[in-house]
Design a protein around this nucleic acid. Structure first.
Length: 355
DNA sequence: AATCCGTGGAA
DNA sequence: TTTCCAAGGAT
C-alpha cells in the first residue's frame, strides 16, 4: 500500500479542518471548543451502545442510562435485571451482559478508572479492537488506529481498493494507519466516522461536498459508490417456532428469564419452543386447551427469519407453572423489559382480543 | 475463520 | 416488499 508521504498530512489536515466546522453535536462528545476532556465512562458507554447500532437509536438509551447511572460505579452497583430491562429494544444483548461485567471489573480491579491504553481496554469484557482504539483515542488522546465500518468505506474509496471485504481488512488497516495523524487521533477518528455517516455514505455519496475529494482515488474514477467491494452474502434461512402466552384471569402474564447462552440471553421472555437452534422445551409450561392465534408473529434476525405461532391459555388465579418465572401485570407490560420479538407477541395478543 | 448475535430506518 | 446496513465482539 504505497501512500505518498504528503497524502497522510493532506488527508488529516483537510478532514480535521472540516471536522472543526461541521462536527455533529452528540451527547457523549464534549461541547465544541470545550477544554474539558470527555468523560471516559460516557465515551465507553456510547461506544458499546453504538456497536452495529445507529446514532439515532442510541441517543435515547444513552440519555436514559447516564441519567439513571451517572458513573461507572453506579452502573456496577446496579441490579442486573434493571440494566437488562433498560437495554431492551436496543438489540445484541450480549453487549448488556458485558456492559455490567465491564463496569464491575473497572470498579473492582481498576479502582473505578478505565485503563488508558488500548491493551488495557482490550482486556475488558465487550471491548474489542475497534472499541479499545476508539476509547484510547477519544477519551485519552492516544494515537490509535480506529477502524469501524465507516472507516472501512472511506478508506476503501480513498484508495480504490479492489479487494472485497472482508479479505481487504488487513489492507484497510494499513491504509488507515498511514493516514492517522500523531496528534488529534480521537478527533480524526470521529471525523472519519462523521464523514462516513454524512457524506461518504454507502449509496449516493456526496462527493462534491467532501473535503477529501481531491485525495480520493474512487472519486477520481468517478465511481465512489462501487466501493467498498463486498463478498456476496448468504441468504437467510426461515425458522418456525412456538410461543406460549399464559394469562391469568386477574390480568397477569407468565414471563421467564432467558438463559444467558440462548438468543436474547439474559432478557425477559415468554415461554417458547426451541426456535433458536436447540434446546428449550417442546411442551407448553402447563397443560390445557391452548388456543392458536390466527396471525403468527413475523420477525427478522441478523441470520434468519422467524415465524412464531402464538398459543394462548387463560388460567385461574391460583394456577402456576412449575418452571421458574413470574406473573407480570398486563397493564404494565411495557415495563417488563421484553426484547422486541416478545413485545411484538404481546402486541399481537392484545390486538387479537377475545377471538 | 466463519458463524452467531437484534433492531429499525432508508431507499 | 425487499434489501441493505449501522461507532463489532465473542467463540
Amino acid at each position: 500500500m504505497p501512500v505518498e508521504p504528503n497524502l497522510r498530512q493532506n488527508v488529516a489536515a483537510l478532514l480535521l479542518a472540516h471536522y472543526d466546522r461541521h462536527a455533529r453535536s452528540l451527547p457523549w462528545r464534549a461541547p465544541p471548543g470545550s477544554r474539558n476532556l470527555p468523560d471516559p465512562y460516557r465515551v465507553w458507554l456510547s461506544e458499546i451502545m453504538l456497536q452495529q447500532t445507529t446514532v439515532a437509536a442510541v441517543i435515547p438509551y444513552f440519555d436514559k442510562f447516564t441519567t439513571r447511572w451517572p458513573t461507572v460505579a453506579a452502573l456496577a452497583a446496579a441490579d442486573e435485571a434493571e440494566v437488562m430491562a433498560a437495554w431492551a429494544g436496543l438489540g445484541y444483548y450480549a453487549r448488556a451482559r458485558n456492559l455490567i461485567a465491564c463496569a464491575r471489573a473497572v470498579t473492582q480491579d481498576h479502582e473505578g478508572r478505565f485503563p488508558d491504553t488500548e491493551e488495557g481496554l482490550r482486556a475488558l469484557p465487550g471491548i474489542g479492537a475497534y472499541t479499545a482504539a476508539a476509547i484510547a483515542a477519544i477519551a485519552f488522546q492516544r494515537r490509535a488506529v480506529v477502524v469501524d465500518a465507516n472507516v472501512e468505506r472511506v478508506v476503501s474509496r480513498l484508495f480504490a481498493l479492489e479487494t472485497p471485504l472482508p479479505a481487504s481488512r488487513p489492507l484497510i488497516r494499513e491504509a488507515a494507519d498511514a493516514i492517522t495523524p500523531q496528534a488529534r487521533a480521537g478527533d480524526f477518528a470521529q471525523a472519519m466516522m462523521d464523514l462516513g455517516s454524512s457524506l461518504c455514505v454507502p449509496r449516493n455519496p456526496q462527493c462534491l461536498l467532501c473535503p477529501l475529494r481531491s485525495c480520493c482515488a474512487a472519486h477520481r474514477e468517478g465511481r465512489a459508490e462501487a466501493y467498498p467491494v463486498k463478498a456476496p452474502k448468504k441468504d437467510k434461512p426461515h425458522r418456525l417456532g412456538l410461543v406460549w402466552w399464559l394469562e391469568r384471569l386477574d390480568g397477569h402474564v407468565w414471563i421467564e428469564r432467558r438463559a444467558d447462552t440462548r438468543m436474547l440471553g439474559g432478557m425477559a421472555g415468554l415461554p417458547d419452543s426451541g426456535w433458536d437452534k436447540g434446546i428449550a422445551r417442546d411442551a407448553p409450561p402447563v397443560a390445557g386447551e391452548w388456543v392458536v392465534l390466527n396471525r403468527p408473529v413475523e420477525h427478522v434476525f441478523t441470520h434468519f427469519r422467524l415465524t412464531l405461532t402464538v398459543q394462548r391459555l387463560r388460567v385461574p388465579a391460583e394456577a402456576a407453572p412449575e418452571s421458574p418465572g413470574q406473573w407480570w401485570p398486563l397493564d404494565r407490560i411495557g415495563e417488563a423489559g421484553l426484547p422486541t420479538l416478545f413485545a411484538k407477541v404481546a402486541r399481537a395478543v392484545m390486538k387479537a382480543g377475545d377471538d
